[in-house]
């Protein structure tokens, strides 16, 4: 395996009025391609902030971070958009599906934005929805589906992009234990079958137990890995 991410001294502070609240205090991190990682730690430990930095959703304020050898501090917003569009899939705690689109349209939307041909898109949508077991539900709208189904649509949406990695911020937190387990099973299976790197944040011991690597965070620092 080779490094997908290599970062050192990553720091990030939030500003709350006149106060500065540190979220990451010099994080050093190295994530291998094809790995299944879980960021663990109590609330306020910096899990979501680190995921946001890794997912190019927040810009770190100091430190360095290489994504597949590219220094993220030196690339333009346009290049970051391209990385987000083509190379990273996101799964959010609250699913964040587009409510006005059907299941298959939700999965297809970002493929269109990737500029893929119709046939290629259709194939990817079918493969992704089959992979999460929702092909039969492709014509349903998000509001017509359960929480677990919605999260699996979100995974299919991320997977269909054929990204280098899938980032999931507490993907099981809004789900019951059984459904959450099913979601993790799906992600583990996809990681094994397609080799996609998976980075999750979770409080859930079950998620941590199923991960290859658990990175412990506390007060914005890596305390175990």
């Amino acid at each position: 395996m080779n490094a997908l991410y290599a970062g050192s001294g990553i720091a990030f502070n939030y500003r709350l009025g006149t106060q500065t609240v540190p979220a990451l205090n010099g994080v050093d991190i190295s994530l291998e391609r094809g790995g299944f990682y879980c960021l663990a730690g109590p609330s306020g430990s910096g899990k979501t902030t680190l995921l946001n930095v890794l997912g190019l959703i927040e810009n770190m304020q100091t430190g360095s971070l290489l994504f597949d050898g590219t220094d993220l501090a030196k690339i333009s917003e346009r290049d970051k958009n391209r990385i987000r569009r083509f190379r990273i899939g996101y799964v959010f705690q609250t699913f964040n599906l587009l409510p006005v689109l059907r299941t298959d349209e939700n999965v297809e939307y970002f493929l269109r934005r990737q500029g893929l041909a119709a046939q290629e898109r259709r194939q990817r949508v079918e493969d992704a929805l089959n992979a999460v077991g929702l092909w039969e539900h492709r014509h349903k709208r998000p509001a017509e589906m359960s929480g677990g189904q919605r999260q699996r649509v979100a995974i299919a949406r991320a997977l269909a992009k054929k990204p280098d990695l899938i980032i999931g911020d507490e993907p099981t937190a809004s789900l019951d234990q059984e459904t959450g387990k099913g979601i993790v099973d799906t992600l583990v299976a996809l990681n094994r079958s397609s080799g996609v790197t998976v980075i999750l944040s979770s409080h859930d011991p079950m998620v941590q137990a199923r991960s290859q690597h658990v990175i412990g965070l506390r007060d914005g620092r890596v305390v175990s890995c």
Binding site: I83, R84, R85, Y90, F92, T94, N96, L98, F110, R113
Partner: peptide, 16 residues
């Protein structure tokens, strides 16, 4: 807001 954040997280620019 959240939906717009999702679009942007998936590579849509401000212009898009």
């Amino acid at each position: 807001k959240q939906e717009i954040g999702t679009l942007r997280a998936n590579g849509e620019s401000r212009r898009d």
